[in-house]
Lab assay of single mutants.
Amino acid sequence: KEFRPGDKVVLPPYGVGVVAGIAQRSVSGVSRAYYQVDFPGSRSKAYVPVEAPHSVGLRKAL
């Protein structure tokens, strides 16, 4: 896996977040693995496909 729990990442347009782990989510009846990204200071979460994280701009924070 490219990202691990605890990694600081950037996800446009949300900003800097932390990978909380990998979650299985069902979309249109198909279960897939997603990185769960939490954003400190907020209750917001984002789910990014493990198979294509760069397709939505997910990258490691510098």
Rank of each mutant, 00 (worst) to 15 (best):
Lys1Gly: 13
Lys1Ile: 14
Lys1Arg: 12
Lys1His: 15
Lys1Gln: 14
Lys1Thr: 15
Glu2Phe: 13
Glu2Ile: 12
Glu2Trp: 12
Glu2Ser: 12
Glu2Gln: 11
Phe3Ile: 05
Phe3Leu: 05
Phe3Tyr: 06
Phe3Pro: 02
Arg4Lys: 12
Arg4Leu: 11
Arg4Pro: 12
Arg4Ser: 10
Arg4Ile: 13
Pro5Thr: 12
Pro5Ile: 15
Pro5Glu: 09
Pro5Met: 12
Pro5Leu: 13
Pro5Gly: 03
Gly6Trp: 02
Gly6Pro: 02
Gly6Asn: 03
Asp7Val: 04
Asp7Phe: 03
Asp7Glu: 08
Asp7Pro: 00
Asp7Cys: 10
Asp7His: 03
Asp7Ile: 03
Asp7Leu: 03
Lys8Tyr: 13
Lys8Leu: 15
Lys8Glu: 07
Lys8Pro: 06
Lys8Asp: 04
Lys8His: 11
Lys8Ser: 08
Lys8Cys: 14
Val9Cys: 05
Val9Gln: 00
Val9Glu: 01
Val10Thr: 07
Val10Pro: 01
Val10Gly: 00
Leu11Cys: 07
Leu11Ile: 04
Leu11Ser: 02
Leu11Thr: 01
Leu11Tyr: 07
Pro12Met: 09
Pro12Gly: 04
Pro12Ile: 07
Pro12Phe: 11
Pro12Asn: 05
Pro13His: 09
Pro13Asp: 05
Pro13Gly: 15
Pro13Gln: 06
Pro13Ala: 06
Tyr14Ala: 02
Tyr14Arg: 04
Tyr14Ile: 04
Tyr14Asp: 00
Gly15Cys: 15
Gly15Asp: 01
Gly15Glu: 00
Gly15His: 02
Val16Cys: 15
Val16Asn: 08
Val16Pro: 07
Gly17Lys: 00
Gly17Trp: 02
Gly17Thr: 01
Val18Arg: 08
Val18Lys: 04
Val18Cys: 09
Val18Phe: 11
Val18Asp: 01
Val18Gly: 01
Val18Ser: 06
Val18Thr: 08
Val19Arg: 00
Val19Cys: 05
Val19Met: 04
Val19Ile: 15
Val19Glu: 01
Ala20Met: 13
Ala20Leu: 10
Ala20Thr: 13
Ala20Asp: 03
Ala20Pro: 00
Gly21His: 06
Gly21Tyr: 05
Gly21Cys: 13
Gly21Glu: 05
Ile22Val: 07
Ile22Arg: 02
Ile22Thr: 06
Ile22Pro: 01
Ile22Ala: 01
Ile22Cys: 04
Ala23Pro: 02
Ala23Arg: 14
Ala23Met: 15
Gln24Glu: 10
Gln24Ser: 09
Gln24Pro: 03
Gln24Thr: 13
Arg25Met: 13
Arg25Cys: 15
Arg25His: 07
Ser26Asp: 10
Ser26Leu: 13
Val27Met: 08
Val27Ala: 06
Val27Gln: 07
Val27Asp: 08
Ser28Arg: 13
Ser28Glu: 13
Ser28Gly: 14
Ser28Phe: 11
Ser28Asp: 14
Ser28Tyr: 09
Ser28Ile: 04
Ser28Lys: 13
Ser28Leu: 13
Gly29Cys: 04
Gly29His: 03
Gly29Pro: 00
Gly29Trp: 02
Gly29Ala: 02
Gly29Lys: 03
Gly29Met: 03
Gly29Gln: 03
Val30Leu: 11
Val30Cys: 10
Val30Tyr: 08
Val30Ala: 06
Val30Pro: 14
Arg32Ser: 07
Ala33Gln: 11
Ala33Thr: 10
Ala33Tyr: 14
Ala33Asn: 09
Ala33Arg: 12
Tyr34Gln: 01
Tyr34Gly: 00
Tyr34Met: 04
Tyr34Cys: 04
Tyr34Pro: 01
Tyr35Gln: 00
Tyr35Phe: 07
Tyr35Pro: 01
Tyr35Thr: 01
Tyr35Leu: 05
Tyr35Ala: 01
Tyr35Cys: 04
Gln36Met: 13
Gln36His: 06
Gln36Trp: 07
Gln36Asp: 03
Gln36Leu: 12
Val37Tyr: 00
Val37Trp: 01
Val37Met: 01
Asp38Arg: 13
Asp38His: 12
Phe39Glu: 00
Phe39Gly: 00
Phe39Arg: 00
Pro40Trp: 10
Pro40Ile: 09
Pro40Thr: 07
Pro40Gln: 08
Gly41Glu: 11
Gly41Thr: 09
Gly41Val: 07
Gly41Ser: 10
Gly41Asp: 12
Gly41His: 13
Gly41Tyr: 13
Gly41Trp: 11
Ser42Pro: 06
Ser42Thr: 13
Ser42Asn: 09
Ser42Tyr: 10
Ser42Val: 09
Ser42Met: 10
Arg43Asn: 14
Arg43Pro: 12
Arg43Gly: 12
Ser44Ala: 13
Ser44Met: 15
Ser44Thr: 14
Ser44Asp: 10
Lys45Asn: 06
Lys45His: 12
Lys45Gly: 04
Lys45Cys: 15
Ala46Asn: 02
Ala46Leu: 09
Ala46Thr: 06
Ala46Gln: 11
Ala46Met: 11
Ala46Ile: 13
Tyr47Asp: 02
Tyr47Pro: 00
Tyr47Val: 02
Tyr47His: 02
Val48Glu: 00
Val48Thr: 01
Val48Ser: 00
Val48Arg: 00
Val48Tyr: 03
Pro49Asn: 04
Pro49Tyr: 05
Pro49Cys: 10
Pro49Met: 06
Pro49Lys: 03
Val50Phe: 06
Val50Lys: 03
Val50Asn: 02
Val50Gln: 02
Val50His: 02
Val50Trp: 05
Val50Pro: 00
Glu51Gln: 07
Glu51Pro: 03
Glu51Met: 07
Glu51Cys: 07
Ala52Lys: 09
Ala52Met: 07
Ala52Phe: 10
Ala52Glu: 09
Ala52Gln: 07
Pro53Val: 12
Pro53Ile: 10
Pro53Ser: 13
Pro53His: 07
His54Cys: 11
His54Phe: 09
His54Ala: 10
His54Glu: 14
His54Trp: 12
His54Thr: 08
Ser55Trp: 07
Ser55Gly: 07
Ser55Lys: 11
Ser55Tyr: 08
Val56Ser: 13
Val56Asp: 05
Val56Phe: 11
Val56Arg: 10
Val56Pro: 04
Gly57Pro: 04
Gly57Thr: 04
Gly57Cys: 11
Gly57Glu: 04
Gly57Ala: 05
Gly57Asp: 04
Gly57Phe: 04
Gly57Arg: 06
Gly57Ser: 04
Leu58Pro: 03
Leu58Phe: 04
Leu58Trp: 03
Leu58Asn: 03
Leu58His: 02
Arg59Phe: 06
Arg59Pro: 03
Arg59Gln: 07
Lys60Arg: 10
Lys60Gly: 14
Lys60Cys: 13
Lys60Ser: 09
Ala61Asn: 05
Ala61Trp: 15
Ala61Lys: 07
Ala61Thr: 06
Ala61His: 11
Ala61Ser: 07
Ala61Gln: 07
Leu62Gly: 13
Leu62Ala: 11
Leu62Cys: 14
Leu62Met: 12
Leu62His: 11
Leu62Val: 14
